[in-house]
Design a protein around this nucleic acid. Structure first.
Length: 231
DNA sequence: CCCTGATTCGC
DNA sequence: GCGAATCAGG
C-alpha cells in the first residue's frame, strides 16, 4: 500500500482526533501500526502524549531540597503550578506528624479549599500538528455531572434518531450498511426488503450481480461500507 | 503478557 | 520515503 494523498489525509485526521496508531492502521488497512507512526513522524505530526515519553520532566525533579522559597517575587506568582505542586516539598528529615485535620474546623472556614483558584494562565505549547500539548498535571477533571435521580432509557441522539440501528434490524427491512461500522452515524438502510432477500430492491442490485457472459467488462461494483477498505 | 508511541536503520 | 525491528513506559 502506498501513501496516497487521500490516505495521508485520513491519517492526519485520525491522528489529530486522537485515535491510536493501531486504530488508524486498522482503519486505513494495508499498513501496520509502525507504518502509521513512521508516516506520522515524517509528516511532522508527532507529539502526542506517549506512554513512554514524559512530555515534561527535566530528568530530575526540581529538587525540593531547601524548603525555603528563596525569593518570593510578590509581583507575579511563578506560573509553574505543574512543576512545583506535585513534587510537594518533602524535606525528608523529620516528617512532621501532621495531625489529621480536625473535621470540626470547617465550621469556621467554610470555603477552605474551594475550587476557586484564579490560577495562573495555563502553560501550553502547540505541537507541530497544531494541537495542544498537555502536561500530565493539566488533566482537568472533566466534571462529574450531577448524577440523575433515576435512570431512564437513553434517548438516541438526534442525528441517529431516525436511522436504522443494529437493534432495529429484522427480516423485513434492508440490512445494507450505511457508513462505517463504529462511526457515530453508522446505520442500516432500513427500506422494506425485496421479498426473499435481506436487502431492499436497490441494494439487492448491489449485492447480487447478474452473471454476465464471459469477457464482458463490468464496472466494479461499489463495495459495501461506502468505500475501499481492504483488510 | 497486553497495549502505547518513539526511534533506528536497512532497504 | 518507507516500515520492521526494537526500545521503553503503562
Amino acid at each position: 500500500m502506498s501513501w496516497t494523498d487521500e490516505r495521508i489525509e485520513q491519517l492526519r485526521n485520525m491522528w489529530e482526533k486522537g485515535l491510536t496508531a493501531s486504530q488508524i492502521a486498522d482503519e486505513l488497512g494495508g499498513v501496520s501500526r509502525n507504518a502509521v507512526i513512521g508516516k506520522a513522524h515524517r509528516l511532522g505530526l508527532k507529539s502526542r502524549p506517549s506512554p513512554v515519553k514524559a512530555t515534561d520532566k527535566p530528568v530530575k525533579a526540581p529538587a525540593p531540597k531547601a524548603a525555603a522559597p528563596a525569593a518570593p517575587k510578590p509581583t507575579a506568582a511563578p506560573a509553574a503550578p505543574r512543576a512545583a505542586a506535585p513534587a510537594a516539598p518533602r524535606p525528608a528529615a523529620a516528617p512532621p506528624k501532621a495531625e489529621p485535620k480536625p473535621v470540626a474546623a470547617d465550621a469556621s472556614a467554610p470555603e477552605a479549599d474551594a475550587p476557586s483558584k484564579p490560577d495562573a494562565p495555563r502553560i501550553v505549547s502547540i505541537g507541530p500538528g497544531g494541537f495542544i500539548r498537555q502536561g500530565p498535571g493539566d488533566q482537568q477533571a472533566p466534571i462529574p455531572p450531577a448524577p440523575p435521580r433515576r435512570l431512564v432509557p437513553a434517548k438516541p441522539s438526534p442525528e441517529i434518531a431516525d436511522k436504522t440501528s443494529l437493534l432495529d434490524l429484522n427480516d423485513r427491512i434492508c440490512r445494507w450498511p450505511m457508513g462505517h461500522p463504529g462511526e457515530p452515524d453508522f446505520h442500516f438502510c432500513g427500506e422494506a426488503v425485496n421479498p426473499g432477500f435481506p436487502y431492499c430492491v436497490e441494494h439487492c442490485g448491489r449485492a447480487y450481480q447478474a452473471q454476465l457472459p464471459r469477457g464482458t467488462r463490468r464496472p466494479p461494483p461499489p463495495p459495501p461500507f461506502g468505500g475501499p477498505r481492504v483488510r
